[in-house]
Design a protein around this nucleic acid. Sequence first.
DNA 1: TAACGTGCCGCAAACGATTGCAGTGTGAAT
DNA 2: ATTCACACTGCAATCGTTTGCGGCACGTTA
Lengths: 358, 358
Amino acid sequence: MTPPPPPATEPGVHAGSAVRRPTLKDVANEAGVHPATASRALNPETRHLVNDETAQRVHRVADSLGYQPNPIARSLKTARSSSIGLVIPDLTNPLFPPIVRGVEDVLGGVGYNAWIVNTDNDPARETAAVESLQNRSVEGFVFATARLHHPLLERLAAIGTPTVLVNRRLAMSDIPSVTGDDAGGVAMAMRHLVDLGHRKIVHLAGPQDLSTGVNRLRAFRQALEDHGLENSPSRLKLCSAWAETAGAKAVTELLDDGVEFTAVLAGNDLLALGCYDALAERGLSCPDDVSVVGFNDMPFVDKLSPPLTTVRIPHYEVGAEAAHLLLERLRAPSRSARSILLPLTLVNRKSTAPPRRL
Amino acid sequence: MTPPPPPATEPGVHAGSAVRRPTLKDVANEAGVHPATASRALNPETRHLVNDETAQRVHRVADSLGYQPNPIARSLKTARSSSIGLVIPDLTNPLFPPIVRGVEDVLGGVGYNAWIVNTDNDPARETAAVESLQNRSVEGFVFATARLHHPLLERLAAIGTPTVLVNRRLAMSDIPSVTGDDAGGVAMAMRHLVDLGHRKIVHLAGPQDLSTGVNRLRAFRQALEDHGLENSPSRLKLCSAWAETAGAKAVTELLDDGVEFTAVLAGNDLLALGCYDALAERGLSCPDDVSVVGFNDMPFVDKLSPPLTTVRIPHYEVGAEAAHLLLERLRAPSRSARSILLPLTLVNRKSTAPPRRL
DNA sequence: TAACGTGCCGCAAACGATTGCAGTGTGAAT
DNA sequence: ATTCACACTGCAATCGTTTGCGGCACGTTA
């Protein structure tokens, strides 16, 4: 004589202080088995250890009680947490949300979660955050904050914490990463420019402590060479930040120095934006007087006037691939590190045109 | 003869499989006390229960071992987690990152963390996410997904789960919320428009299942009345989504229907953007032919041409206030619910001007 | 001297799961 | 009949904390 099934609890909401959420023990009692057996029955990995009929009974009871395993207890026992740490500089930078979505979406597909932390590029905050995440038993990290030299990442790698880098890489290290193919991207952009007829092209390079900064700069130099263009130091402006003001400052200085150019390849869209500003201030027209191409294809750059020609990085996919890489690494820590280069695309809008006089 | 202090472990990184992180028991042993005493000594709330000298010793040992409490074990025992759930529709919507930062920053100040989940406005995903968060013992929620009628939120409120809403509110409910003062915002915008000389103003209203949609619409009608302007149904266009295309569609229809207007108040910036598009397609100039004002002051709307006049919502502060409210509620669940209306500001840019002919 | 309050601390039982190990019963092989 | 393998399940320890309760030693009061 089995007791009648208990009144079905309101699905979806069991918390509150009134009704205690059912535990594994409750399920076990109800099903007439030992908690250990219930545990095994409910866990796909160990389900084969228990008699099929028993397992089914346990499942039925679990469903009817609305049982859900307590991830905290599980974590405590197993020292795993089904979650990873996702450390980014700043969520309000539109670059990162798509990446976040990418990693979350693939992680979620296999029952993993991501803890997101912002570091504001402060190493101290970063260290503290990582430590806190480790206390929470995250199983790995994806970092969007990698600098060329990054002691914390090196330590993490040294002790074998599964880690993958997005968007950026380390100078010397085999930590897996997934990034856009910066070299390919600037090659495309430069070809586009020379095809249009440009010969005097300048590069607004971002800070050189990030792999993106150096990679794009290097690729720019390479392109100059490939197309047989003059490679004078004046063709290049190092910006102190990936920000609009830095971009504006750079082209203003270029203009003041009397450097001649008909096109600028900006290290990223923000720099390109600054470029717009500086040009406008000098009464120069884009693209009539100077063409500009950006990098990243941030939201809304298609709404600028002129809409910005830029090279698009598939940020969502970057995140997704990173999650795959990390998952793979969690399952088979031994497999050798692998990095992924995602192809970039040039999105051709209205900020580039043939130079005024050929 | 106290043993020499153990070699200081590399600060910031203790994980790895090699070295076990010190536990409370380790600290207790080293300090020659029972784990319970160590626990009490380390916990500010209970520190007074142990002899001051002993407590200091425990603290010293803890520091020297680099001890950090295991939040998982703590959570299991206490059924609290020092974390809250933050449920938003979509992180890639630029509205939300500042809110997220706001709540994180104030939460972080008191040792709390936020679990962020995206629902994509899918009630099923939302329910699942909330359930999963409850399993993780989150102590409360901040919701950015509130619809006017929202069964899940009502259930949560019914069982007393501490909850605060941001940006949006429920139709009938006293769940605390922090939102922008929509009514005040449209009043400002409308005054701005009539001061400029506009008499024929239309409103692009967002979907009416969100409090923002209905509040702004209601305020628009109120403003019409306040300024003695004609309130005909044609002055209003309901948009099916808070999206660019919906905005474009709306003004195209307005134009096709031959309704005369010199200014449009868009329900949000995206709608305003659509407005730009439709106007441009018809060869109409903004602001010469028609003025438009948006809502939200999203990033980069100052870069549009013309730069968008819009009412700014202090999103970061919204998040921060929400976190304060929630924290307060966690500490004193009894205190009556309180909602906060944050003042909005009109940021006057270039998309509004006097109507062509007065 | 007895009674009692107080400060401090240890004992042990939780919290809710997982898992190595040992036990049971069954059928098959010797 | 004995042994053995095997399938299944229960026992109990464990993960790292927190916390109610009780005990001890002391000082104070009657």
